[in-house]
Design a protein around this nucleic acid. Sequence first.
DNA 1: GCCGTTTTCGGCCCGACTGTTTTCAGTCG
Length: 575
Amino acid sequence: MMEKAAISGVLDEIAVLLELTGENPFKIRAYSAGARILETLTEDLDELIKTGKLADVPGMGEALVDKITTLRRDSVLPFHQKLKASIPPGLLEVIQIPGLGPKKVRALWTQLQVEDIARLKSVCESGEVAALKGFGEKTQNNILAGIKNRIAYAQRHRWADAAEIAEPILEGLKKLPQVKMAESAGSLRRARETVGDLDFLVGSTEPEPIMQWFVNYPGVKEITAQGETKSSVRFENGLQADLRVVPPEQFYFALHHFTGSKEHNVAMRQRALSRGLSMSEWGFKSVDEKTVAPGAKSEEEVFKALGLEWIPPELREGAGEIEESEAKRLPRLVQMQDIKGVFHNHTTASDGDHTLEQMAAAAEKMGWSYLGISDHSKSSFQARGLDEGRLAQQIEEINKLNQSGRFHVRVLSGSEVDILREGALDFSDDVLGKLDFVVGSVHNLFTLDKEAQTKRIIKAIENEHVDMIGHLTGRLLNRREPYEVDVAKIIDAAAANDTILELNANPWRLDLDWRWWRRAAEKGVLCAINPDAHDTEQLGFAAHGVRIARKGWLTKEQVLNTRTLPEVLKWLGRK
DNA sequence: GCCGTTTTCGGCCCGACTGTTTTCAGTCG
């Protein structure tokens, strides 16, 4: 049985392969769109297939339903196999080079027998590429640069890293005298977990000096494009940034357009057309040219013109947000100011950098009313995990601190207890029973097969002392893949046992992934946004967690840490 | 390949920029 993510990967690959065969671009788009739809589907895939409801999902026609059904059942698809066999596998890498699309790759393939990167490099170096019709000296050099930097260029950047680069640029833009308004857009604004490139948008009637400022920004390694309204630069680390300057009247159309996603934009434009309006980053145009097309002085007005409520950028993934907006059913997303405290944090007792007191003081400074401390348990000896004795001592310390009245913030005693091989926990029920809360986490045996890993975690979920499961899939963005685990089953088990799933807010983790939360919430699973802070500053990770929770359509009600201390204590004492 | 108060065929979102061209194709988002 093939995973949803893997099936969507096959559909994406089919789309690229079809590009290389020169297929109808709209057919290609149907496959890409199918992959995106599948990725964000909240319903159970097997259920959809069984009941035939998959065909009711917009964008899923007979052919896609057939292929997805086959892939789910057999894990292979003859159509895909055949297609793959007809194209040199190396071309899938070649087409990733910036500036090379299907047409150019086909030309290289048919005329210069380019079947992989190595051959491409050699025909560039020999000058044969420049001699091809439609190619030239510059294209050849760009390809060579693309080959040289292809790993850096392909890399997506963790949101927090991208934001760190984007912030001072945006501030700088806002300070320029010619700039009326400026925002960052793209996947950064949509709060994706990783960001491919930065998009800056400026409203101004004088683009020229703004462009100059931008392409001369410190750290810019090369200028990849520079026109009247758009410039692109690349930084040392491979991150690309685009700047677009538009007249202030068009700013909100452009902001909407470059916030995307592609699927969201396509749907918006189709909606506009059905209302007699052609929509672009420059605004609306009346199709019949008889009526006057509306302008917009805010993003709200862009949506309003199409009969929609404003859709938060986090939701603009083309996953049904437009339908919900039309029906006025958009969720009221959780906000940072709703957060009243956090769970799952570490101190110097295990692998944290700051003491209990320092952490409490920092939590108080955040304006929170409670702070959960959950140091590691004894099996995590690499993290100086606490044994029963040291844990008892820590509980005592926490009690004393709470009684001392030194802080308004209430410290909750907890443990991030290791889930052992068969799902048993690192502490006995007696020990766990003395704590205010318990986070159960997997820290070893990442290579267990899916069934065993799932069973192991569900066993922990069923333990009455376990309040929440930490970083469910163990992924580290750009560094370590999630381990094999049946998330759908875990969600059902968490719902059945009234166990919380953590949204680990560490920017490397952001685990559980945003794509699962809508479904988890629908099933009644409660979320806890946990910074997993190992020092005082990392308590601020909570903001990353809130961002991902919003992306996962979560409301205040679906997140435990929006509740008051008495409500939280009541919930933790529920069983 | 998908879709349908332009409906079962014939459309399908829209525009900027580059490089290679003499007016535009290809790529990108």
